[in-house]
Design a protein around this nucleic acid. Structure first.
Lengths: 209, 209
DNA sequence: ACCTCATTGACCAGTGTGGTCAATATAATT
DNA sequence: AATTATATTGACCACACTGGTCAATGAGGT
């Protein structure tokens, strides 16, 4: 049976999820305050503990929820028929932006979970991560590396491309840290990204002829 | 007169500074615990408050200390006679690594301070940052942009280079988050960085002839 | 009218907080 | 050696906030 939390009004659900993502992301498990969460989400303390009997179960519910989206809507939507690295990464960024518009702190939450040190949940997180590793990290499987120029170290070229995309994306993530979470104009961002990718295609790939 | 804290045994000084950097970096001002700081530094609670009468003064002392190092030993050591962007950035990375070996979390502390939201210190941080802006950000002044190929958007090329260097450096920073702070082998890291920079010189710069 | 379940917020014991202070160890000065 | 000054300790404090409880109320369905 599905978790009864999902019977809640959908808007309220997302308010709760985002409030909890925020509190856990910023403060980590131990220091995250359930009082802050309910205040931010606009619900009562009793209601939160009506759905999640302990802080720990709340956290693990959120982790499962985040990881499922990560695997299904982020990694899961990659088209593995596409052998071109850059096109594949472009798809990945787009997936990410779509998720960010709904859950601005989902990725931050997962990253913080990665470094989480609290003894109360460390082992549970590790279990879940191991379970997930089977799915992910196929990102670079079956990539057409022969597109790169011969005189270029392929591993380093890939790193440069990834770091560029990361740096480019972080501009929009960091914005979220300061401002309230403003909606991202996905088409506009993708168009700007495209220009960077064009540079790589031009300079890193073989000249076709 | 110098702060009496500087009369303390130098090793102990650095232990205190690094312990406080860590606690403030990980938890932010409000949630940082002075109890954890003294435990990590191996001194008594009373001694900390002997040198710094309040948590606030402790924080601002650390901020001033970090910012001074940042301006003096990071930005301040740039050779402005060097007009080549890549060489200038290389110098910057080296400065950073040297600082990181002594204060592994100095940059993390300053970055966290940038996003700090606590009302107790927000305005004080802003004052100090404004004061510092005069010095910094001359990084790109008087750079020889004509070294770039004509058919390359210079602004984007610069971003790619910076993001690459950032991504490259973060490998070593994130390592510090998990492990204890292991000494960085500066020569080795610089040699690896050099290979990335060579790629940029080859592909982004004009071919000399 | 009755049942079920969502929702509230005052309340609780317990933990950790920033900060104090009287006591002691150590060093400097006379 | 005696005195003064300073470095250092840790038990102690009032207080804020913690995760979690629970009796009461609201709302909708039968």
């Amino acid at each position: 049976m599905e978790h009864k939390f999902f019977n809640m009004d959908k808007d309220k659900q997302d308010r709760v999820i985002n409030a909890c993502f925020k509190e856990f992301s910023f403060n980590g498990y131990d220091l995250a305050s359930t009082n802050n969460m309910v205040k931010e989400a606009g619900i009562s303390k009793g209601l939160l503990f009506h759905y999640f009997p302990t802080k720990k179960e709340l956290y693990l519910f959120l982790y499962d929820y985040a990881q499922e989206i990560f695997l299904k809507d982020f990694y899961g939507l990659i088209d593995y028929h596409e052998k071109d690295l850059i096109k594949r990464l472009k798809q990945l960024v787009k997936n990410k932006l779509i998720i960010l518009n709904k859950y601005p702190l989902l990725f931050t939450f997962l990253e913080k979970a990665y470094y989480e040190t609290s003894n109360e949940i460390k082992s549970e997180i590790n279990e879940r991560r191991l379970q997930a590793e089977t799915y992910a990290y196929q990102l670079f499987a079956d990539i057409a590396l022969d597109k790169f120029r011969d005189d270029l170290n392929k591993e380093k070229a890939v790193n440069i491309i990834i770091w560029t995309i990361t740096g480019f994306s972080n501009q929009y993530l960091n914005q979220n840290m300061i401002n309230s979470f403003s909606e991202i104009n996905i088409d506009k961002v993708m168009a700007e990204l495209e220009q960077y990718l064009k540079i790589f295609i031009k300079l890193f790939y073989r000249t076709e002829e």
